[in-house]
């Protein structure tokens, strides 16, 4: 990367395709990588519940979830920089991802309570659902691509609902596992977006 230089990296990144499509140059789309990341981290959230304190024997495992949110934010920042359209929406997602990652990290470091972290996470999830779903989907509801985008938004709202239930009734293994499965579903929905967008 140092050899390419900053401008070289930007040029390479600028050859990324328009949103969800495939360029004539065969550059890489963004949706599936975010989807794979959320699928991966969601599975690890489920493993965290099953393993209990064994999972937290290593500090890096404890911080994996907030770190992945922050890394996603940087990834979305790159998407904002190179995508020619819908920059405002992508930038909004950047801010939401950073907020979620920052406050989740502070909770896991023992600096704030779950209630305080949820005070930021729940609105971020609700707003994220609006941004990804109704605001981002282009085309009629009968269009499979638009429908899948709406589904991604609905999954975000489901995650917000699970966090609300945890706030109201307290964390249980079942709710925490459901949240992890919901994050996996978010990843799967993003992979499905690519399935309908892209081709061979």
């Amino acid at each position: 990367m140092a050899a390419l230089g900053y401008s070289g990296v930007l040029d390479a990144a600028a050859s990324l395709p328009r949103h969800g499509g495939v360029t004539a140059g065969g550059s890489l789309p963004g949706h599936p990588f975010f989807g794979a990341m959320f699928l991966f981290v969601g599975a690890l959230l489920v493993v965290e519940i099953l393993a209990g304190p064994v999972w937290h024997r290593a500090r890096w495992r404890t911080m994996l979830w907030p770190a992945s949110l922050i890394v996603s934010g940087f990834g979305m920042l790159a998407v904002t920089a190179v995508q020619p359209d819908q920059k405002g929406l992508h930038l909004m997602l950047v801010v939401l991802l950073f907020i979620g990652g920052f406050f989740e990290a502070r909770y896991r470091l023992g600096q704030i309570t779950r209630t305080t972290a949820d005070g930021f996470a729940i609105p971020a999830l609700i707003l994220g659902g609006f941004v990804i779903g109704p605001m981002h989907a282009s085309g009629p509801i009968t269009n499979p691509v638009a429908l899948i985008h709406q589904f991604v938004g609905v999954v975000c709202w489901m995650l917000a609902g699970i966090r609300l239930m945890q706030y109201r009734w307290g964390s249980t293994a079942a709710l925490d596992t459901t949240f992890g499965c919901g994050v996996m579903m978010l990843g799967l929905s993003l992979l499905l977006v690519q399935q309908f967008h892209g081709g061979h």
């Binding site: 890489l28 990588f33 992979l191 061979h200």
Partner: peptide, 15 residues
């Protein structure tokens, strides 16, 4: 018609 892009970024392959 499989391309390198599909191999690297195909949803099933990523999974």
């Amino acid at each position: 018609q499989i391309t390198l892009q599909h191999i690297v970024s195909g949803p099933a392959h990523l999974m």
